[in-house]
Nucleic acid binder design. Structure first.
Lengths: 68, 68
DNA sequence: CATATTTATACCTTTTAGGGTACAAATATA
DNA sequence: TATATTTGTACCCTAAAAGGTATAAATATG
């Protein structure tokens, strides 16, 4: 698993049958950002991630740490 | 409410009776970052927020959007 | 298998996050 | 209330995030 957040976004995007450029446009972020996000990049801005998650009705919040 | 994440960190820090400089040091981030974070700054890096949350046994994850 | 669509990678530029630090404001304590 | 501690604000600097875009790689489709 690359990243829970990445997986969430990738899955929800496919559920809606959107391409990366389409999601970028609708979420109001750059295409490159969507790509990096879906690939699990960690050094991304929180507000930008939220902008994408909002499109799916989600947002970032504090959760318990994974027992990896 | 400034920000759920900000409040979480501020509260947990006080529970452990730590000052901002102490938390910054232990979490391995800059003091200024802790200050901005506790004041609800949204344009922060996800990995840095996680660095702080890890100290409290938490992390960022996708949650349902708030009905504000 | 050829072709079209989608995704990944790479380059350049601008903006800004984060660290450091100094000082003011606020809060706690003696 | 005077003093010490903690927090907030402001400054400079560097590294890199994000946008745009072109192209290669991968995947889907005919």
């Amino acid at each position: 698993m690359e990243s829970k957040i990445a997986d969430f976004i990738k899955e929800r995007r496919k559920q809606l049958e959107l391409t990366q450029p389409e999601l970028a446009e609708r979420a109001g972020v750059g295409l490159r950002f969507i790509r990096e996000l879906e690939q699990g990049k960690q050094t991304v801005r929180l507000d930008k991630v939220n902008q994408v998650l909002h499109f799916f009705g989600g947002q970032l919040g504090v959760v318990e740490m994974e027992i990896v």
